[in-house]
Design a protein around this nucleic acid. Structure first.
Length: 463
RNA sequence: GGCCCUAUCGUCUAACGGCUAGGACAGCGGGUUUUCAAUCCGCUAAUCGGGGUUCGAUUCCCCGUAGGGCUACCA
C-alpha cells in the first residue's frame, strides 16, 4: 500500500511555524515511506479565505523544500461534494432540515444552555434550510499512532450540519470526501482535531469509505502556553526567511520540537531526519516555540556554509555601496560570518552605531578614547601610532591585507605591549570601541585611509 | 459547564519497571583575548500532589490539581 499524506491548510492567515511543523511531519512521513504528499487548500470559508494567504503558503513550502506531488483547492471541487451530499440524502445518511425544524433546534439549544445563564433573552433569527447528518448515535473508537486508543460517544454531537444554507458543504464533510477521493492513508494533523475525528469517522462510515490511520501531533504553543495561532502573533515563516534564517535551521529546529531521535544528536540534515523519523517517538504534549534555540541552530548552519553560499545569503542585507564581488566585499565575508547569528544582523552592523559603521565613514571620537584603559598615557599612544604609521607606510597599496599589516607591525606590538599599541590603533582606525581587530579593519578601508585616520588621531593626541 | 488530550530543569527533551534522573538552548562563573562577538571549560536547575500495584516506580492503575483543545450554517 502506498502511503499518501496531506497537508490541508485553510488560507485564512499566513503560514506560521505551527502549520509548518504539521506540514513537515506529514511530508517526512510520506518521503520516508516513498509515498505521496498532497497539498490541499481548504478554502470553503469564502469570507475568510484570501488568495494572498494561499500564495504565502505555497511560497513558504517551496522555500523550505517541502515539495508536494499533487495540489487541490476545495473551491474547485464543489461538484464532487454536491454529488456526495445528494447520495447521502438519498441513502438516508443525511437529510434536509427545513427552516421550521432549524428554528426549533435553535430554540431547544437556547433553552438548554439558557438555564444556567442569566441573560437568556437572546433573540432567535429565522433560519434557512440546511443539510444535516443523520447521527447513528454510537460509540467511536480509533487508534491514534501517537496517543493510542481514543474513544468518543457521538450522541452529544447530535445531527450536525454538513452543508450550509446556500448549499455549501462544511469543513467536516469536505475533509472526509477529499481524504477518501485522494486516497489519503495517514492523516497527520494537529491535536486540535482530535475532537473532530469522531464525526469525521461517522461520515467515512456513511459513505462506505475505509478509515485512514490517524496521528495527532501536539500543538505548538505561544509563550503563554496557548495554541500558537495567527491571531496570537505567530510569526509567518516568510518573516523568518526575510530576517535571514536559513531554511536548514528552521527545518532542524522544528523537527526536534515534538520529536526526538534515539540518540542525543541535534544537528540533523533533512535526509537524517527522514531516515530516523518515527511517529512513536513523537511527543504527546505541546511545545513552546523558542526563538533563542532557533538562533543557535542558525548559527550552527552559518558556520557550515561555503563562502560563496554565505555571500549569496549576505548580499540582500549589505548596504548598497558595497559592490558584490569587490575587494571590500570579499574581505568582509569572513568578518561577517564570524559575528552574525541571523543574516539581518548585517544591516545592524552597518547602521550608524554598528560595529562596521567605520568602513564607510569614521565617526568623531574623543582624545581620551584613544588611551587604553589599563594604561592611559597620551605620549606613549602618540609614539606607538607614529611608529606603526611608519611601518604600514612601507607596505604596497595592492598587498595591504590583514595578514601583511599584522606581519609588518607584530614585532613592534610584541615588544611594546599588545594593549598599549593595539588599542590606540583600533580607535584611530575605527573610532569605535567595538570593532574587528585593527588588521582586519585596516584591510577593509585600505592603506591611504588608514594613514589618514592615524594622522587624525595623532592630531587629537597633540591637542 | 460538557467531552477529549496532556503533565521530567525557565525552554526543547532522554531514561526495557532498576546506576548519582542524561543531553541541548538560555542563565551564571571562568579560560583565551587589543574591544565586542565567537570559541573552550565548568556550575545552577526538574520527575505537579495524593493514593495504590511492586522487592523497586519518572515509567503501570486510580483520584485530585493544573494547562491545553473542541464544543459554529470557522477551518
Amino acid at each position: 500500500m502506498t502511503v499518501i499524506t496531506r497537508f490541508a491548510p485553510s488560507p485564512t492567515g499566513y503560514f506560521h511555524a505551527g502549520s509548518y511543523r504539521t506540514a513537515l511531519f506529514s511530508w517526512i512521513y510520506a518521503r520516508q515511506n516513498k509515498g505521496k504528499f498532497i497539498l490541499r487548500i481548504e478554502d470553503t470559508d469564502k469570507e475568510r479565505s484570501k488568495k494572498e494567504y494561499e500564495e504565502n503558503i505555497v511560497d513558504s513550502l517551496k522555500w523550505l523544500g517541502l515539495e508536494y506531488d499533487e495540489f487541490y483547492r476545495q473551491s474547485d471541487r464543489t461538484d464532487i461534494y454536491m454529488r456526495y451530499i445528494k447520495q447521502m440524502v438519498a441513502s438516508g445518511h443525511a437529510y434536509i432540515s427545513t427552516p421550521e425544524q432549524e428554528l426549533k433546534i435553535s430554540q431547544d439549544l437556547a433553552r438548554a444552555s439558557g438555564k444556567n445563564s442569566k441573560n437568556s433573552t437572546e433573540t432567535i433569527q429565522p433560519r434557512s434550510s440546511v443539510i444535516r447528518f443523520k447521527n447513528p448515535n454510537k460509540k467511536i473508537v480509533f487508534n491514534d499512532s501517537i496517543r493510542g486508543r481514543i474513544e468518543f460517544d457521538t450522541t452529544e454531537l447530535g445531527d450536525f450540519v454538513i452543508a450550509k444554507s446556500e448549499g455549501e458543504p462544511v469543513f467536516h464533510l469536505v475533509v472526509v470526501i477529499d481524504d477518501h477521493e485522494m486516497g489519503i492513508t495517514h492523516i497527520i494533523r494537529g491535536e486540535d482535531h482530535i475532537s473532530n475525528t469522531p464525526r469525521q469517522i461517522l461520515i467515512f462510515e456513511a459513505i462506505g469509505a475505509p478509515i485512514p490511520q490517524y496521528a495527532h501531533i501536539p500543538l505548538l504553543l505561544s509563550a503563554d502556553r496557548s495554541k500558537l495561532s495567527k491571531r496570537r502573533g505567530a510569526v509567518p515563516v516568510s518573516e523568518y526567511r526575510s530576517r535571514g534564517y536559513l531554511k536548514e535551521a528552521l527545518i532542524n529546529y522544528l523537527a526536534l520540537l515534538g520529536w526526538h531521535p534515539s540518540d542525543d544528536k541535534e544537528i540533523l540534515s533533512v535526509e537524517e531526519i527522514i531516515s530516523s523519523f518515527s511517529l512513536d517517538r513523537v511527543q504527546k504534549s505541546g511545545a513552546i516555540f523558542d526563538e533563542e534555540k532557533l538562533k543557535w541552530f542558525n548559527r550552527q548552519y552559518i558556520t557550515k556554509l561555503a563562502d560563496a553560499d554565505f555571500a549569496e545569503h549576505a548580499r540582500p542585507f549589505l548596504p548598497e555601496w558595497i559592490v558584490p564581488k569587490s575587494d571590500t566585499f570579499n574581505k568582509l565575508i569572513p568578518v561577517l560570518r564570524d559575528k552574525i547569528v541571523i543574516f539581518s544582523d548585517i544591516s545592524a552592523m552597518f547602521s550608524a552605531n554598528g560595529e562596521l559603521a567605520f568602513v564607510k565613514q569614521i565617526n568623531d571620537y574623543s582624545k581620551d578614547s584613544l588611551l587604553w584603559k589599563k594604561n592611559p598615557n597620551a605620549d606613549q599612544a602618540s609614539k606607538h601610532l607614529a611608529e606603526i604609521r611608519g611601518l604600514l607606510k612601507m607596505l604596497a597599496n595592492d598587498s595591504f591585507t590583514a595578514e601583511t599589516t599584522k606581519q609588518a607591525v607584530w614585532p613592534y606590538v610584541e615588544a611594546n605591549g599588545k594593549g598599549d599599541v593595539l588599542w590606540p590603533l583600533r580607535m584611530a582606525i575605527t573610532g569605535q570601541d567595538k570593532s574587528p581587530d585593527p588588521f582586519v579593519s585596516s584591510a577593509l578601508i585600505g592603506k591611504d585611509e588608514v594613514l589618514r585616520r592615524i594622522d587624525t588621531a595623532l592630531g587629537k593626541l597633540k591637542s
